[in-house]
Design a protein around this nucleic acid. Structure first.
Lengths: 331, 331
DNA sequence: CTAGTCGACCAAAACGTTTTGGGGGAGATA
DNA sequence: TATCTCCCCCAAAACGTTTTGGTCGACTAG
């Protein structure tokens, strides 16, 4: 390239990057020759020099525990990943979806990313340890419940979801509201349960809480339905179920036992999915806005990467809406 | 690192990579020290030296023309991308989802990938030109109809899908079968139409073909329904519609006009999606097996990358199944 | 004792950039 | 003519590996 343009390597670099002092005519010529040759600086060499590759890593922790990256009917995460990839491109970065990079078999490229997004970190997440140790910036979606000092996370609105869902159910006439969470040690489960228990305490309600393994899917929901039916306590008249597949399973289980949704029991899912949209009746759900969240997370991470040391950006807020469907619409 | 272990940089490299001649004890010690320090070779520097980053690029051409990477109800591509990312990880690579890298605003990392997967290349696709010019290996899903010499592609089974769908419809009693394709210049549209016309010629049928822009989604399907109804020719008794959203729209349009599915008209979609699964009635669809295809594509690309010059692997075959649903189940 | 062989290790080059610290020539000033 | 100043431009270092082509002893064979 330098030879073709008849200048030094230095001048090529300066010309193409708009740095240094180069005569206008020279710069122009270098740019033309580069275009002609289809030349552009090698990203790897540039990365070695600058220690920035233009690559973001995305680790979706729930998929690590689910074991499968293609779980039936869990579209939240794929939509999240897709939107994150697109937003990254718009910011001039590539995005690589990774599994737990502490797991040994991680690809070499893992730690070469400029920054990471960790979706739903576990309590005391070792991935955060690893990245922190290697001084790689990261942004989390959901907080690490054992790491109160770590503040670069977004999605705190999940806490308020509990309140809005309960308000929604009250409005529709519910008196006894149960909560079903997953068992992953993330803030989505933990904070929702805490928030629910606070509400119960404040309102002199006996809390009704079930925790069910996310991996069991709809079948796990049916199990919860069975437990509810077998319980001595009277059936709740509304159930807030964090994962959509559990919700669909609970609905099917209760219907199989002769109960009507929503007339006998109302159901709300904490996460919209294909099942909640297409069950009979369709299930009212919180739209966790995977696209908007992914976009915000990437933008936040990029801002973090490109910010000066002194004026760090602060995490954006995400707005969640309730998709009001027939499972909470009585008579 | 070399200092900590008391050996030269060379010996560290040799020890960790199992190359060169190093005394067993020394190698062992180096490995221990590395583990202790959490050291592993910098992927960028290694990449510079070896010109291989351990990164694969994925370009999904239909999403470039759709303009949106989050199209409503098109889950094929996200599932494809997710599965590809996972398979890449299993092969020790990272995978980056990219937009058209010829579009100028491509991230610098674009051409640093070791190899590319191009899903549904357009006719004479400039992306293939770019990669070929830069000597970057690539694998396509679907062929470039203007590039018969390019053989590193898979998914040729889409051709046979036309035959199996027609056979399916015949078996269910269809006599006049229409075809609706998209308008993208890819082999999925082109080859399906050719194959359909061949069948029509061989069977003395007047071909009934509509081409509709993929971007119009369900609304585009309704338009086709209107055209069918406005046509002088009698309504076909079966419609093979390549994209799932068009199929759902056609079904809705015909139903709105008072026709019954499947009794008056049967409908088959060439691509399974949330709409085809959840329409009323559910629409019989070809399961394009995005996960299996993605997995095969990645494995093929990796084999290509890691093969010797002399024994290149050949593309795998994908099996497609028809999901038999109520839209083709009469009586 | 000398030459040859082999095992263990290492110095230095190379990969393609960016950045630093000049260098050289042309024009201006004395 | 000699010196000073700019303005352009460039050589060389550095980034952290891998790989090449050794060197240095110790041991063996003649």
């Amino acid at each position: 390239m330098a030879r073709h343009a008849g200048v030094s390597i230095t001048t090529v670099s300066h010309s193409l990057n708009g740095k240094g002092v180069v005569a206008k005519a020279t710069r122009q010529r270098v740019i033309e020759v580069a275009a002609e040759l289809g030349y552009s600086a090698d990203a790897i060499a540039r990365g070695l020099r600058s220690n920035r590759l233009g690559l973001l890593g995305l680790v979706i922790r729930p998929l690590d525990t689910l074991g499968s990256y293609q779980p039936e009917g869990v579209d939240y995460f794929l939509r999240f990943a897709g939107a994150a990839a697109v937003e990254a491109l718009d910011c001039g970065y590539g995005l690589v979806l990774m599994r737990d990079p502490t797991a040994g078999n991680a690809p070499g490229i893992a730690l070469a990313a400029d920054g990471f997004i960790i979706s739903d970190p576990l309590a005391g997440d070792p991935v955060i340890d690893l990245l922190t140790r290697n001084a790689i910036p990261l942004v989390a979606v959901g907080r690490d419940v054992e790491r109160p000092d770590f503040t670069a996370w977004l999605g705190g609105g999940t806490l308020r979801n509990v309140d809005s869902v309960i308000a929604h159910l009250h409005e529709r006439g519910a008196k006894r509201i149960a909560l079903v969470t997953g068992t992953d040690a993330n803030s989505w489960n933990a904070d929702s349960e805490n928030s629910y228990r606070e509400w119960a305490a404040e309102n002199n309600q006996t809390p009704i809480v079930y925790n069910q393994d996310e991996r069991l899917g709809e079948e796990g929901g049916r199990e919860i339905a069975d437990e509810l039916l077998a319980s001595d306590a009277p059936l709740p008249d509304a159930i807030y179920c964090l994962t959509g597949r559990h919700a669909a399973g609970i609905q099917a289980g209760l219907q199989a036992a002769g109960y009507r949704i929503p007339d006998d029991v109302m159901i709300v899912a904490g996460s919209d999915s294909e099942q909640t949209r297409n069950s009979t009746p369709p299930i009212t759900s919180v739209d966790l806005a995977p696209e908007a969240t992914a976009k915000a997370a990437v933008a936040y991470l990029v801002a973090l990467l490109e910010a000066d040391e002194d004026d760090q950006p602060s995490p954006p807020e995400i707005q969640y809406d309730i998709r009001d469907r027939a499972s909470t619409r009585r008579g």
